[in-house]
Structure formats: structure tokens, C-alpha cells
Design a protein around this nucleic acid. Structure first.
Length: 276
DNA sequence: AGCGATGTTCGCCG
DNA sequence: TCGGCGAACATCGC
């Protein structure tokens, strides 16, 4: 389920299983998955190097592969995007590749890291610097960047017209929020997904920002251990007609920003209807 | 058998 | 230029 919280956990998984291991070879099993984000010749660029650090921006994960023993100036970076169904698996020596392995990083110690992606919307490539990818995709700020203050959300989205949910999903406005967590943050802040971003009040921006921060941080913690989402969340009740876990209203569904959207018809009211 | 899916991108239209 | 919409991408699972 790769939105920001899942990718953050993939980053931690990568750190646990791939950091400080020397790469012996890289096998690219799928030409659709490899290359479009950057260069495709992963084996030539990465073999002989070791992974030394990671970084995440929105739904993109970056792994630094350095030739020396330290993070260095001659590094290359492998970039991962997990699409809808991508994830990592760590393989011990001799363990067979899981089904749908698209890229396999084999380590000198004979273990391996598999990039697995059944539906092939995931992408892997190598680039010189993470900033290049962030710039070329025009990614907006990452909502968990500790350097960002409480005005971040309003600055990123506040001048826009049209449905707030569509802008939460726009990776060039804000990087990392996907369909489920956009719905969750709006649900918890009591804002209708079709509310116009340009007409949100200061109190609504504050509620939305607090909710988004809480939702993403809680989801990171939930995803790292097999654990359920808190009661009172929309997350596991995404079905129209179900009772709202917060107010007892009815959950409704609609298409907003091109995606299936669930919200509570009672506590997420539309103040000013958008022309349609 | 048909439909929808946690994502991204492109083209068309107003 | 922006925003809305639909389609395409590929494949699986309900």
C-alpha cells in the first residue's frame, strides 16, 4: 500500500536489510519497470558499490550507492517508486526469488534484495542526485519534513481553486499523500473532500494540518508493526452506507479528483457548493 | 466474466 | 494557465 507512510517503512526496511552491504550484481527482469525515472543500466552503475544512506521524498525512495566506505561525492542514487503494488523482500543466500520480482540486487554475501511489483506500475532507476528527480517531477514539499512549519499546508495548497482533495493528491503541490490518507485527513478534520481549497478558513487549515500530521505519523507507526488503525478512523470502513465511526452519520462515496472517495455525510459538510 | 484498485501521465475541453 | 475529466498503463483478486 505505498503512500508516504508505507514508503517510509520501506525506507526503514531498506536500511535494515541493505545498508552497508556491497552489491555484487543487479538483475533487471522487466524493461517497463526499469529506467523511466532515470538511467536503466543499474548493474553497470551499482555493482561494486555499497548502499550507504537512504532518503525519502513523498512516495519516492532514494538509496545512495557509494564506491568507497563512506558516503561520498562519487555516489550514485537508486530511486524507487512503488506504484500500486510494489514492495521489498530480503532474501537470504539460496532463497528463491519471490514471484513478480522485477529487480534483484545481489549482495557479495550471497543474500539479495528483491523489488517485487505484481502490477508493474513500480519504477526503479539510477540518478546522480535525489534533487534532480525531485526537480524534474516538480515534487511539492514532503509533509513530514521536519523543516516545515505549521503554515506549510496552506502555503502549498491555499491559493488553489477546486476540490481540496484533488490538491492533496497533487504530488506537485504536496508530495506523498495518496487516496486513502487524503480521505482520512479530511475525515478527521471534518472537511468535505469537494470543499474549495481557496475558501477554507484559517481554522480549517489548522485542523487539516494537524489531522494530516497525526494521520501520517500514526500510519507510519501502524505500518511498522502488524497493528490495526485506531478506532474512529475511516481507514478500515471505506464502504458507503456504513455508520460513521465518529458521529454515527452515514458514510457516503463519490468520485473526487478522479478517485473513489469516502466521507461522512454528516460531519464533513460542504459550506459552499462548487459549480458543477 | 466484469469491475475496481493504495499511482502516474497525457490529451482534450472549457 | 488552471481545473475537471476520461483514458491508458498492467495485472490481480473479489
Amino acid at each position: 500500500m505505498p503512500e508516504l507512510p508505507e514508503v517510509e517503512n520501506y525506507r526503514r526496511f531498506f536500511e535494515r536489510h541493505a545498508l552497508d552491504r556491497a552489491v555484487a550484481s543487479v538483475a533487471c527482469r522487466d524493461r517497463l519497470v526499469v529506467g523511466t525515472l532515470g538511467r536503466a543500466d543499474l548493474d553497470r552503475a551499482v555493482a561494486g558499490r555499497a548502499f550507504r544512506s537512504t532518503r525519502r521524498h513523498g512516495k519516492y525512495l532514494f538509496a545512495e550507492a557509494a564506491a568507497g566506505s563512506r558516503r561520498g561525492t562519487d555516489s550514485v542514487w537508486v530511486v524507487f517508486h512503488f506504484g500500486m503494488t510494489g514492495f521489498f523482500e530480503s532474501l537470504s543466500a539460496g532463497e528463491p526469488d519471490p514471484p513478480y520480482t522485477r529487480v534483484l540486487f545481489r549482495f557479495r554475501d550471497a543474500g539479495a534484495l528483491a523489488f517485487v511489483c505484481p502490477r508493474r506500475f513500480g519504477r526503479v532507476a539510477w540518478i546522480r542526485r535525489p534533487e534532480d528527480l525531485i526537480a524534474s517531477k516538480r515534487l511539492g514539499p514532503d509533509p513530514l519534513d521536519p523543516a516545515l512549519d505549521s503554515g506549510m499546508l496552506r502555503r502549498a495548497l491555499g491559493t488553489r481553486r477546486g476540490a481540496i482533495k484533488a490538491h492533496l493528491l497533487d504530488q506537485t503541490a504536496l508530495a506523498g499523500v495518496g487516496n486513502l490518507y487524503a480521505d482520512e485527513a479530511l475525515f478527521q478534520s471534518g472537511i468535505h473532500p469537494r470543499a474549495s481549497a481557496a475558501t477554507l478558513r484559517a481554522s480549517e487549515w489548522r485542523r487539516l494540518e494537524r489531522a494530516l500530521d497525526r494521520v501520517l505519523r500514526t500510519a507510519v507507526r501502524t505500518a511498522e508493526a502488524p497493528r490495526r488503525f485506531p478506532r474512529g478512523w475511516l481507514f478500515e470502513r471505506r464502504r458507503a452506507g456504513e455508520p460513521c465511526p465518529r458521529c454515527g452519520g452515514r458514510l457516503a462515496s463519490a468520485i473526487v479528483g478522479g478517485r473513489t472517495t469516502f466521507f461522512c455525510s454528516r460531519h464533513q459538510r460542504l459550506r459552499r457548493r462548487l459549480k458543477r
